[in-house]
Simulated assay, not measured.
Amino acid sequence: MSSKNVVPIVFSFDDNLVMQAGVCMTSLLHHAKPETFYDIFILHDSEAKFPSSGILEKLFLQFSEFSIQYVNVGSDFRDAFQIRGITQATYYRLLIPDLIPQYDKIMYHDVDVIFRDDLSSIYFDTDLTGYYVAGVSTPYSDIEQYFNEKIQTTSSKYIAAGDIIFNSKAIRDDNLVAKFRELAKLNWKYQDMDVINVACKGKIKYLSPGFCVVGTTSEILKDRDQQYYTQEDVEYALKYGIIHYNGPKPWNTWCLNFDIWWEYYRKSVYFDPEFYYSFYNNKLDEYDRLPLIKRIKILLRYFKTMK
């Protein structure tokens, strides 16, 4: 491993998302360059069963240049504010600098994402001197008023927390985790994401959109008249960007870029023909039951996004 480019990366999830995490990691490892080694850490609570199940270790049947280490967070954030059915596990990323002190810089990603490129370049090329965290902002949002009033910021300066890079050394040096903990007790609408943006305000580095392509970013990317990103950034994001399913989940329903998730599901060791057939059969039945005009609208919207 010493001759490799080691990229430390953290995920956090519970027993309900193990298969989806496996698909996510499949996409990560599928695109790894020969010289890249992913040092993977998985945060979980003390009740999680998957660390001893061997499910994620099935990835070693397909790939070799990675490691998996499980980090038990215990009962941390049990008293943190929870909303919209999102549990305390979402706060675990706030502890990463302290939980994994062997790295001064480290990535975090949710598991409802698909990777389409190697991550070593962005990891090593992102200089975080003078910053606590790096991530992607969405320069247009329908909750701008919330950002202005609650966070005292704008959408163009508010980063998504599902794909970020921590300057762990700076966070440890300034004891920022303690501030994270205190802020997590307050009633934030977007929980850990609000906490990160409030605590790190003024020390956030903004990355190109390809590091986190959410639904609203996709809307901007397909607008040929948009003024937010360079053409180079747009082309990279559309072809290689990290797709984050921050709304409807592709394993549950049709959604933007759902077919890309299923592509990697088919490539993974977690592929189950029955599950695959059941999803598409049910969706075809739903489609067939729609009125003709609704089906035409769906087709028109699909072909529009393909342009």
Rank of each mutant, 00 (worst) to 15 (best):
I204S: 08
A237T: 07
Y280D: 04
D223P: 01
R289I: 08
S156P: 00
T126R: 02
R301C: 06
I243W: 05
Y280I: 13
K179L: 11
V214M: 06
I196R: 04
Y276S: 03
F258V: 14
I68Q: 03
G22D: 04
D174I: 07
D233C: 07
N148T: 15
S27A: 13
L59C: 11
S121M: 07
K150Y: 07
I122W: 06
Q88F: 09
L94A: 13
S3F: 09
R116S: 06
Y158I: 01
F279M: 07
H44L: 03
G22A: 09
I165G: 00
Y92P: 02
D127K: 04
K205A: 08
A160I: 01
L207Y: 02
Y108R: 03
E144D: 13
P34G: 04
A89N: 13
G130K: 01
D112E: 07
F211S: 01
R78I: 13
Y240W: 05
M19D: 11
Q69S: 15
A89I: 15
D173G: 04
A134V: 01
P51Y: 05
R266S: 13
P139A: 11
L238G: 08
V6W: 05
F50G: 07
L61T: 15
V71H: 07
S156V: 04
M107R: 03
E286D: 14
N252H: 07
Y131T: 05
V213K: 00
C255V: 10
I293N: 11
Y270C: 09
A32K: 11
V195N: 00
Q20G: 05
W262A: 13
A89H: 10
I298Q: 14
N246Y: 04
Y287R: 03
F60W: 06
F147T: 01
G247I: 11
V269Y: 03
L299F: 13
Y140N: 14
V10K: 02
G210T: 05
D45N: 14
L284H: 07
M1C: 10
N148H: 13
P209T: 08
K222Y: 06
P8L: 09
I164C: 01
Y38I: 06
P209A: 10
G241K: 02
W261Q: 02
L292V: 15
P273W: 02
Y270K: 06
L299S: 12
W261N: 04
I196C: 04
Q227P: 00
W262N: 08
F13R: 04
F303Y: 09
V113E: 03
D98N: 15
D194T: 15
S156W: 00
Y38D: 01
N16Q: 12
Y206H: 12
I100V: 13
V198A: 08
L29M: 10
F180S: 09
W251H: 10
S3P: 00
K205C: 09
T126K: 01
I196S: 06
C212T: 02
I298A: 12
R266H: 11
R289T: 13
V234P: 01
V18F: 02
A134H: 00
I55P: 00
F180L: 10
G135R: 02
S75M: 02
N187G: 06
I298D: 07
A161P: 00
P8R: 12
M107A: 12
S75F: 03
A178G: 04
A48S: 15
I243C: 08
I151F: 00
D223S: 11
